[in-house]
Design a protein around this nucleic acid. Structure first.
Lengths: 244, 244
DNA sequence: TTCTTCATCTCGAAA
DNA sequence: TTTCGAGGTGAAGAA
């Protein structure tokens, strides 16, 4: 990048002109965007084809590629970070490709018209500070175990079992083993199945005379999940994640 | 939009000038992008804060908002479709907000410097044609049920049970009920739990003398999932999804 | 690398 | 509207 120009743009460029901007942008580690009429082909874990339309393409210096239409939060096509971007001319069309291996994946965007091209140079030193996650809910429970039930004593977090790591492992006031599974939001049947796997694994792992209780801690449960909890002999306690 | 200008751009605009472009762009249903130094605050299902840095902001006419850094496939902050975008000036800073209710969510991007602003007008009449999905795998099995096992007869798809809909419901050559759960990729313990829920629900639903087999059909399984299958008395058959 | 689980998951379909 | 499961899920942390 040049020190005095953090952005370089072109409107209605000739394909060769756009090619030059994109090539130089990728070369210097800029974030490159294109808007125009294009088709998109993808082949890799699956395969897709997208006919002509106006879309926004973003090529990131870390190798990520995103193709956005004017609708939806998710890109219509993409490539994850670590891909190699390339740009070329084919029959007067600008062709952008992004490839990777393991797994082999190929994305190809062919612009019949480039409406706009840009290369942005910038830095972002900041990390996102996020609250209200499952980790925050765990901290809240550990600070005040009575939120689960009076007399509950946490003994370990992320305790390993043959079925995976338990969110909070502890015991109740009668000395019975307690497995707590945490969810930051309303839960369905999948979370019950997860808790049941941990409880089952611990029942097999510990001595046969050990009683194991399973408690699902979340803001709320669906009807089907509640029924499943009853069938499996598991419990539910309503707790909101902190941080609003 | 004007018929002869499908894109409108500004480089290093004064805040008031950028405000004007963004307001008009949102008004006419254009896709609006901004690049510059900004801070981002979010509050809703969770809450987050992001200090100053250079980011790319995209406002879609359907109400989606995306904030991208130069790294990662996922936006660092976002708002789903259906939100109301607004833009304003505050102390000579350009402030972009995006709000929705149910749930109440608020996103606020404050630009200390706007490097670039653009409004794109376009249309996208095409739908993505995707192959290699679970639906394609289902079609493949229905065309050739012997891929599951010789003598397997599909009787229904999406058959409802108290635990949810079964991918393929059928019977084997001995007349036993068979529940097939399909996955387009290598499966872990979660898929086994899902199949087990369906099998359990059907065992309760059908007469007690009915034997119910559960078969997981996927390209491959993890070790832990295979062990879980054995514990639950469930089966696995390796089948690749078609397409490619 | 693979495995496992979380996610402001998103998205679509069905009830 | 809520519920449920798929997704080219992505991303993080651990083995």
């Amino acid at each position: 990048m040049t020190a005095d120009r953090a952005v370089e743009t072109l409107s209605y460029p000739a394909p060769a002109t756009a090619l030059d901007l994109v090539e130089r942008g990728l070369e210097r580690g800029a974030l490159v965007t294109l808007f125009g009429t294009c088709t998109v082909e993808y082949e890799g874990r699956a395969a897709s084809s997208l006919g002509p339309g106006d879309r926004h393409v973003m090529l990131k210096p870390d190798g990520a590629a995103l193709v956005h239409t004017d609708e939806g939060q998710q890109p219509v096509n993409w490539q994850p970070p670590g891909c190699d971007h390339a740009v070329a001319l084919a029959d007067d069309a600008l062709v952008v490709t992004s490839d990777r291996s393991t797994p082999d994946e190929h994305l190809e965007v062919t612009f019949e018209t480039v409406t706009h091209a840009a290369a942005f140079d910038g830095t972002d030193p900041e990390d996102l500070a996020l609250t209200g996650t499952e980790a925050d809910l765990k901290d809240r429970i550990l600070e005040d175990p009575a939120l689960v039930e009076a007399g509950f004593t946490p003994l370990a977090t992320e305790r390993e079992t043959p079925a995976g790591a338990v969110d909070i492992y502890g015991e109740d006031d009668a000395g019975r083993t307690v497995v707590v599974e945490l969810k930051r939001r309303r839960v369905g049947p999948d979370a019950v199945g997860q808790l049941d796997r941990y409880v089952g694994a611990l029942r097999r792992d510990l001595h046969a005379d050990t009683d194991v209780r399973g408690i699902l801690v979340a803001p709320s449960v669906t009807d089907r999940a509640r029924q499943l909890l009853a069938e499996k002999g598991l419990e539910f306690v309503a707790v909101e994640p902190p941080g609003r």
